[in-house]
Amino acid sequence: MTDADEDEFDPDEHAREHDPEARVRALQSLLIEKELLSSDAVDDVIATYEDEIGPLNGARVVARAWTDDAYRERLLEDGMAAASEVVDVDGDAIDLEVVANAPDEHHLVVCTLCSCYPWALLGLPPTWYKTPAYRSRAVKEPRTLLAEEFDTDLPSDVEIHVHDSTSELRYMVLPQRPPGTAGMDEDELVDLVSRDAMIGVERLGGGER
């Protein structure tokens, strides 16, 4: 492509001048007119992310791992295959590595280059996860970031492992099972698993496993 081919159209300059809502509706309209997109596909995509795929998927996987040691091993070995045993997700949707917190280890997930995220298990990434503030600091000063921005104060003897998602392999944190939950069944445990604990900005549990 040369500039002459496109009559000097510059998408960045155009975008600076025009509202993104109007621009995406223009794209969408032209694609629909060419039958490269359909109205029902648009509605389905939105509904899928609003109603179907969300952090509840990940929470179910974590709760199962807390209650079934053999499952936990499978989950750490092959994340998506194990996840698809528990929730209705395609085991090939993403490559997933589950990283397990321990009394002296804490894992934190970031994508410094864009916004890579284990969406099949956690849904849409939260807005803050995609901001320059989070992406810039998570790799350089994770301890300070967790304390200042998320009220997650880690003892100095807990090592922090930051996973910068540079490939198509996506990371999810397996938090520790919180103390005082020995009598709870899997469904009750699901409610304790927060999205933020599976990203690693929150830490559940203390010394157990």
């Binding site: 609003e50 952090p55 849409l124 807005t127 803050w128 503030a133 600091r137 970031l145 200042e148 998320f150």
Partner: peptide, 14 residues
């Protein structure tokens, strides 16, 4: 880049 605009853990939607 300043503080992270953390929203308290609400589920993300469009």
């Amino acid at each position: 880049f300043g503080p992270v605009p953390y929203d308290g853990g609400e589920s993300e939607t469009f």
